[in-house]
Design a binder for these strands. Structure first.
Lengths: 244, 244
DNA sequence: AAGTATAACATGTTTAAACAAGTTTGCGCG
DNA sequence: CGCGCAAACTTGTTTAAACATGTTATACTT
């Protein structure tokens, strides 16, 4: 639900680009045209376009115009720069997601775990281990740690569906910011068992560790996602700052 | 060299956060204070702060303020969201970079290569294979393809130093936009040979494929970077759009 | 016909102002 | 003392205007 004007314009332009309404490699309508089209001020148009730039959809050229450089992403791509749950990502790609909860327990953070998760020692937390399937194929093992104080009332049943949906819709929590680190790590016995992998073929996993903050600026989630290497694909768009 | 006012403010705030001049987890000065500090308008301050948000340095909270959530990144981290050459990244981390050119040749793009690189078939291109060392340890093998039309005059000598420096400083070329895809792939004999890896231990590589556009919106570079898995580390910051 | 100056048009930066919406502070009343 | 409301903060959205800078098309001059 777009709540602001620039967000509406952003989504509309994005849709038009994705649906090829604006030809690839061609220029978008100029700011003046867009101002008339959407009946808004120049700043509002520019704000929408600048988001398309960071998304890698368009490229602005001073004096020339705004070029559509969008290229459709392959099905398996997870998008960086946005926080998206496994379920959301799967649905966006037209796949059928499912989840199996392997472990659900409540723990107290000790010193060792505090260093790994960033949670203060002594804090109460949920530890959840989940297996994510896409079209019945096991792809990801997630190790989630949620601070109990910030995410009360988590249950195994919620974990089987969407934790983020519970946090946002039921707890009215705003998830705001997530720092993610991607590494490659050796496969473990757990990985091998649940992902039905043969370590002769692949002895590594793609690992995404994420530290997520809520709208109070409190770190409430640490998650390690271990991805099957042959189905792992992350996409990113980088902009070189002028004069950097 | 910051050319604009908001860029100056952005860099100054960034420096103050990195140097702990603003305490971690605390609020930055309010917009009104910053307006007085930098003698500028509110928009200009907000523009600077919004870049800190996308960098994951701060988090804004309506009605409350702007919280410093910066955490220093480990030495080996490459930063996403920015285009940075191997040399720049190494220097930023206080390491000594060096490069060995394994292959330097001029080629004509055939159909197969066109599909992989995104270059039009029949185009002239440079193909460069380079080995990157950090503190004398071989870490990355790069396979670069540059469109000759866009990057004339490349030589093996330039490739041994910094290609990006040549493109920006000598050719006065503006590198603007780069789409990157991260995957995990099986190790090849070339990887094993030059990176001195034992496939018993690691039989995978972290692979970053990037498609880079110049300021005319033309795709002029395709690069596949194959990273030693045990030294690979990419960092990203994601912001969840309100109402997404 | 070629070259140059200029006008028209593109995006980039900055300021100012008004209103919206969320949070904290403090005052006053019961 | 405690509750509630209002004032005084905070950031979020939108408009308007001016000037800067880069590109392209036009028209004029030679």
């Amino acid at each position: 639900m777009p709540k602001s004007k620039y967000d509406t314009i952003y989504k509309d332009l994005k849709r038009k680009i994705e649906s090829n309404e604006y030809a690839s490699q061609e220029l978008l309508p100029s700011e003046n045209i867009l101002i008339q089209t959407y009946d808004c001020s120049r700043n509002t148009v520019r704000r929408a376009v600048s988001r398309l730039v960071t998304d890698g959809y368009v490229q602005t050229m001073q004096g020339k115009g705004v070029r559509n450089i969008y290229q459709p992403t392959p099905q398996t791509a997870f998008t960086l720069g946005e926080i998206e749950s496994f379920r959301e990502s799967a649905i966006r790609n037209g796949r059928v997601p499912s989840t199996k909860v392997l472990v659900f327990m409540e723990i107290t953070v000790n010193d060792s775990l505090s260093g790994k998760t960033g949670f203060p020692a002594g804090a109460e937390a949920y530890y959840i281990q989940r297996l994510h399937f896409l079209d019945d194929m096991p792809l990801i093992i997630n190790h989630n740690y949620f601070r109990k104080e910030c995410t009360p009332g988590l249950t195994k049943e919620i974990a089987e569906n969407s934790i983020y949906q519970y946090l946002e819709q039921d707890l009215r929590m705003a998830i705001v910011n997530s720092r993610r680190v991607m590494t490659v790590e050796k496969i473990t016995e757990i990985d091998e068992k649940y992902l039905e992998l043969n370590s002769e073929e692949y002895n590594c996993m793609a690992v995404v560790s994420s530290y997520t903050y809520n709208s109070d600026g409190i770190l409430f989630e640490f998650t390690q996602s271990r991805h099957r290497p042959d189905y792992f694909r992350f996409q990113d768009n980088a902009v070189r700052r002028s004069g950097a």
